[in-house]
Simulated assay, not measured.
Amino acid sequence: MKKLVSVLIFVSGFISANVMADPLDFPHIVTTGYGEVTAKPDMAEFSVKVLETALTAEQAKQAVDKVVDKYLSGLKKAGVKAENIHSSNLYLAPQYHYPKDGKPELTGYRANRTVNVVVNDLPKLNNYLDLALKDGINQVNNIQLKVKEEAKFKRQARMAAIRDANNKAKSLAKGFDMKLGKVWQISYNAPNTQPVVMRPMALDMRKESNSYQDSSLVIRDRVDVIYKLKN
């Protein structure tokens, strides 16, 4: 009887554990295919915060609510739909002075609220940030640049990964004078797309806020495949 020889070729430095969980007793090739697509961002999400400190809790609350209400009204007038604006509840905390000797002394209260905005018309992003500055918002937490048709770009990256796995398997089989058989197992875990994140900043950013125009979003995917080999 002809002795069966197992052929295992690692194409990448890492093969997912579930692909190699059980030893295979037939000739095979294990490949990992990678694919990526570059997309130009056409939408954004950003988060801004207003912080106020006052002698009393009520004063701090009123100061924060006044700024947030004005900003929300301005966003709606600028055409941002209500479902694309989300404001957090008020966070209020007492502020103390701690002398070296003696008990802590209450000095006032700090209040803050956060507003998250989805921007579907990317060229208007700067307008909404300028509006925040004008209305008294004093902190930008982050700006994330994204694409609306993310699913389409993910499919393109996935197909590129599949083609990469196939091409590697064909090349390896040919190089070892063997014939590539059918696919025996596919292992796939969709990676999360990472948006382009602009650095957090205070609202002194007129030179910084245009940098998103030159940004690009890279969407990546991978697939692990086991192919049978024929002698």
Rank of each mutant, 00 (worst) to 15 (best):
P23N: 08
G102K: 05
K66C: 05
I162H: 06
D214Y: 10
P94I: 03
Q213C: 04
G102V: 02
D204H: 13
L8P: 04
Q144R: 08
L180T: 01
V48Y: 02
Y128S: 06
K76N: 11
H86M: 13
V37S: 09
K152V: 10
K70L: 13
F153W: 05
M159T: 08
K170V: 07
G33M: 00
K182W: 05
E58G: 11
R220H: 08
A17L: 11
S171H: 08
K182E: 12
N192L: 14
S216Y: 13
L125N: 01
N116K: 12
Q59P: 04
V225D: 00
F153C: 02
L122A: 05
I9W: 01
P191C: 06
A173G: 11
K152A: 15
D221M: 02
T193D: 10
D177G: 11
T56H: 05
E105A: 12
A160C: 03
K134F: 11
M178T: 08
F176C: 12
F10N: 15
D121E: 08
D224S: 09
D135A: 13
V80D: 02
K100D: 15
K230I: 12
F14T: 07
N84G: 04
A165R: 00
D214H: 10
I143H: 11
V67C: 06
G181I: 01
Y91M: 15
A39K: 03
D135N: 14
P41R: 01
M198K: 06
V50Y: 08
N84H: 12
